[in-house]
Design a binder for these strands. Structure first.
Lengths: 339, 339
DNA sequence: GTAAAAACAGAAAACGCTTTCAGTTAAAGG
DNA sequence: CCTTTAACTGAAAGCGTTTTCTGTTTTTAC
């Protein structure tokens, strides 16, 4: 039932070599023999064994994608696009969830040293770069949406600073003078650091007029957003505008505010990040920063294919995509946006 | 830099065989030599080449998961769980998006014949079973959330009929007498057929009192939901309750209804499916049927591991999980649910 | 008409492991 | 003390391809 290239060769009355040439479209095979081989392959239902191929060719046609978790809408969109582009190149994707655990990340990086994949797309960086770097000797690593100065590899990212800058400026232009920057920790993530930089730049341009600037750095999901709002209630001087590091957090803030009969955006303006479906659904819709995920995915796959082909990938190259502010109901009243 | 088992053997002054035994924890290796091998492996930074291993062992420790698309929250949750359970068994997951295309599905089924994976988890069935069945000769296929009578393989599913029955009964108990069953097409999907069966059963139990029953069978996402509501407006006799085949559709209906100043649930009750985050966010929250995805994922991985091990998998086994109705604001007024 | 190049074909080596087989040494049993 | 069994080790075969190398035939060029 399961046949090898040898069986095909025998049936066609030819050598393994010739059969292999037909499979791989090598030139220098006569039409006659090509036909005989194809006929033999069909009658036997022959399919080349990929393990043998991998061993001989030293190529797996597989790439691993490391993400914290796939249920995060940002990552599932990213994976969707990556898979489609990879598939165009006949490449397969192994999905690895690090769950924010450094040890899981290393476990999955092993896929590169054990030659189970030709390269790694790193969308999660839990370890210090010096820990990750040694894996480079086994194949290319392309960083995606993450960033580290030290890494001398291709990196594709969004211009987070600019995104945060534009969003913050928007809040300031609406007349807000007491701001809250609400995100995850900036210790672990360059993304937060870049956003904070953009946020502060906008603030500094308005420094004469700004009354107060506060920071919350442990907000990741909707429940955190609700908590942030409740903590606000206890404070003396509330901010009038919040820059949130994600639409979930923004949504949490808004929903909790509504529970307390606050009017958004009159009493509190909120801007989110990522333009998730969520930001269209709740009332008011959430002003948010849109990330062109598919563009990023396309670039990442292109880079990966190139690096696998050329086998030179220990050079820092940074590709940056611009973000766009989508102004909606959570910062400006009476938007004309009607679905 | 890249070393083979031969290099390790040489450095340790032992044979390949012994090194291999150490790697695979075979018994009958003296402590002394075990230490020497381990030392040699460490100094060389040796990692076994997986292609060679696969070829020799005839096992890939990889499984493919076929889904329509990963951005569908149901599937991303499923994949998240599958990946975690697979990882517990040291198995890797290749993600394949069929995008509802039969030819893509077949392309990915080839992963089994080419021995790139040990088995396939089929969460998408675009081809007739007779087309898929031949792939079984190359390895196990476990069906997940899909179902076909003809398939003599393990299948894990939810009791869709029961779920729809309970949801519909809930609507009827609330006094509704004009119902709309709103889902995707029942041509392609057994799921819809089962739900319809449950829906009709509930209706038949109230047949003396039910005034009208209608069906819409081309609703898949939020925009479809909005469209369904608008079409309702034109009709003479509106249904007062809708069973929707997904939370997105339900959300679309509710949002559009609110745009038209309708009161939910007073003027229209809506029940969704899948208990997505979405169903918690919009106002009112959506009564929905909760599917225990992680239980299903666990069973699927267990089955797959067993079938790979025993190599017998051409027997129909059906495992069914029960669904639970989560009653929220879109069917009952003034829920006490306060987050 | 001959030399050089291009087209075709197969034998054998190689890819890097695991497994079988056969053999040696150490421990246990009587 | 000899025999049997258990513990340990290595040589060589094998997994199923592709690639290199060598050789033959055909075509092209002058």
């Amino acid at each position: 039932m399961v046949s090898t290239i040898e069986d095909v060769a025998k049936l066609a009355g030819l050598s393994r070599t010739t059969v292999s040439r037909v499979i791989n479209n090598h030139p220098y095979v006569s039409e006659d023999k090509k036909k005989r081989v194809k006929f033999a392959m069909n009658t036997l239902g022959f399919v080349p064994n990929s393990a043998a191929r991998r061993l001989r060719k030293q190529r797996t046609e597989t790439v691993a994608v490391l993400v914290p978790r796939v249920t995060n809408p940002f990552f599932s969109r990213l994976i969707e696009s990556l898979e489609i582009f990879a598939s165009d190149h006949k490449y397969k994707l192994i999905i690895c969830q690090t769950r924010y655990l450094p040890e899981k990340e290393l476990e999955y990086l092993e896929l590169l040293s054990t030659k189970q994949v030709d390269g790694i797309i790193l969308c999660s960086l839990q370890n210090h770069w010096s820990i990750v770097e040694p894996y480079l000797q086994h194949g290319p690593i392309v960083m995606c949406n993450e960033y580290t100065d030290e890494a001398h590899i291709p990196m594709v990212k969004f211009n987070q600073a600019e995104g945060a800058y534009v969003a913050t400026k928007h809040l300031l232009e609406q007349g807000h003078r007491r701001l809250l920057f609400c995100s995850g920790s900036d210790k672990s993530s360059m993304i937060v650091q870049h956003r904070k930089k953009g946020f502060l730049q906008a603030v500094s341009e308005y420094k004469e007029q700004v009354d107060s600037v506060e920071f919350v750095e442990d907000a990741y999901d909707m429940e955190d957003g609700r908590r942030v709002f409740r903590e606000l209630l206890d404070a003396k001087e509330n901010p009038t505008a919040i820059f949130a590091g994600g639409d979930e957090v923004a949504a949490g803030i808004i929903l909790e505010a509504k529970c307390h009969q606050w009017n958004i955006p009159e009493q509190l303006a909120v801007v989110g990040f990522d333009n998730q479906l969520l930001s269209e659904i709740i009332e008011p819709t959430i002003t948010t920063v849109c990330q062109p995920v598919d563009q990023m995915a396309k670039k990442v796959i292109e880079l990966m294919m190139e690096k696998i082909r050329t086998k030179t990938y220990k050079k820092q190259e940074v590709y940056e995509f611009e973000l766009e502010l989508m102004i909606k109901g959570s910062t400006v009243k009476h938007t004309t946006v009607l679905a």
